[in-house]
Computed example of a mutant assay.
Amino acid sequence: MKVLAAMSGGVDSAVAAARAAEAGHDVTGIHLALSRNPASYRSGARGCCTIEDSNDARRAADVIGIPFYVWDLSDRFHADVVEDFMDEYAAGRTPNPCLRCNEKIKFAAVLDRALGLGFDAVATGHYAQLRSGADGLIEMHRAVDHGKDQSYVLGVLDQSQLAHSLFPLGDTNKTAVRAEAAARGLLVADKPDSHDICFVADGDNAGWLREKLGDRATNHGGDIVDDATGEVLGQHEGTVGFTIGQRKGLRIGTPAPDGKPRFVLDIEPVSGTVTVGPRERLAVDRLTGIKPRWCGTVPEVLEGPDVTVQLRAHGDEHRAVVTVRDDGVAIELLDPAHGIAPGQAAVFYDGSRVVGSATIAATQRVHT
């Protein structure tokens, strides 16, 4: 097959490209330029978006012996990922930009262009596995290394995208990948993984959002209030500095009567009110999901002992019943979850298989 290997400049994508070439595919490497001014995004060689990363990817392609190009997708990335991130936070929601990047950039813009150029598939360094199902469809499953499993951020991919995707690292753990990179002479073998949001240069999400949102009406200060009493406990500089479940950085002078820490329970961006309370008030057992995306056949109901929902990258799995509706999905959590915010993604599993995903629109607290 003709394969386009997306090379971020990190060790995972370099080994994935090398494996694809070694498997006999006709591989071409590409690096995505996601900012016209890379210095405005994260600085330092961290595995995404910087000039150093582009150079690392090029050197890896040279070692592997494959052609290499840089594709400028900065305008598309800013419109579909960065702007979406700002809009969601301004509305009091907590988005996951990595899912949006996979959906809109890596497996939409890149894959569409690749197919248009005559490539058969796009290979990435994501940790997930693809298998042929009994119904002839392509199934996506968790990686062998559950600690590195990235199927959660790939839960937005549909069947047409999975049919043209390769994940060469799904059967390997990270230690083995680094050892393989060193054995292949890839200089990125010991390069640190990236963890922060790539377009927030210093990792200060709240500060970045305040600067970028500027004078947007929902980016004003407001009160921090107690959930039980309605007492105003303090003020803040903008709701974008908070997310549901947050404990640190509240700067509340008045301690709780029981001496226990308070957590953010609710964010109201129009009034600027941030409501805080005890951890037990964070427990939710009902979720409403919108904009569902299915990896294969659309189910009517997902239920059974192996059906789970994951609500954060590398988060816990929660046993659940998922009912598909015309306007989205209703999710009943048999194992309540804590600190779940609108805007996060709910990814549905049947055992290790990814069934689909949805964006959380609303949550309902456990009645106590």
Results as ranks from 00 to 15, higher is better:
E231S: 09
L157C: 07
N173P: 05
G125C: 15
G203F: 06
R100Y: 05
V153Q: 07
A182K: 14
L166T: 06
G155K: 02
L169D: 11
A217M: 07
L115D: 06
V110N: 11
L162D: 14
G234P: 09
G214F: 14
A123T: 15
L117T: 00
A176I: 00
A183D: 14
R100C: 01
V177P: 03
N102K: 02
K106E: 12
A163M: 10
D171Q: 10
Q161A: 15
T218R: 02
D226N: 12
D226E: 13
A206R: 04
F199E: 05
V225K: 08
L130R: 02
E180Q: 13
K212P: 09
L233V: 12
P192S: 11
D135G: 01
T229H: 09
D120K: 01
A201C: 07
K106A: 10
S151K: 00
V240I: 08
D202Q: 01
H141D: 15
G234C: 10
H220T: 14
E231N: 00
L209H: 02
H195P: 04
V188K: 01
Y127S: 13
G203H: 03
L186F: 14
E180H: 10
A121C: 12
V232G: 07
L130D: 11
W208Q: 01
V122N: 11
G170F: 11
P97R: 04
V156Y: 08
F167H: 14
A206S: 14
Q150V: 03
V122S: 10
W208M: 02
H126C: 14
P168L: 15
L166I: 06
G136R: 00
A206Y: 11
H236N: 10
G214V: 14
R184M: 15
Y152S: 08
A108K: 09
D135F: 00
R210H: 15
L117I: 04
A182H: 13
V110H: 07
Q235L: 08
T172Q: 14
Q129T: 14
V144H: 04
D158A: 12
Y127D: 13
S194K: 00
P192K: 05
E231Q: 12
R113Q: 12
G230P: 00
W208K: 00
F119E: 06
Q129G: 12
R184T: 12
S151R: 00
R131D: 15
A114D: 12
G133E: 13
V188N: 01
V177L: 07
A181K: 04
T218L: 05
V153G: 04
V122D: 08
A121E: 06
H126P: 09
E180R: 10
A163F: 04
S194R: 04
D193V: 10
E231G: 01
A228C: 05
S194A: 05
V144M: 11
R210I: 13
V188R: 00
G116W: 00
D226F: 04
T229I: 06
Y127N: 08
A143L: 08
L187P: 05
L157W: 05
S151I: 02
H146E: 13
S165M: 12
G116Q: 06
P192E: 06
R113N: 01
D112R: 02
T175G: 09
G116Y: 03
S165R: 03
A201Y: 03
P97N: 05
T175F: 03
G234I: 13
D204Q: 06
N219E: 08
G147N: 11
D145W: 06
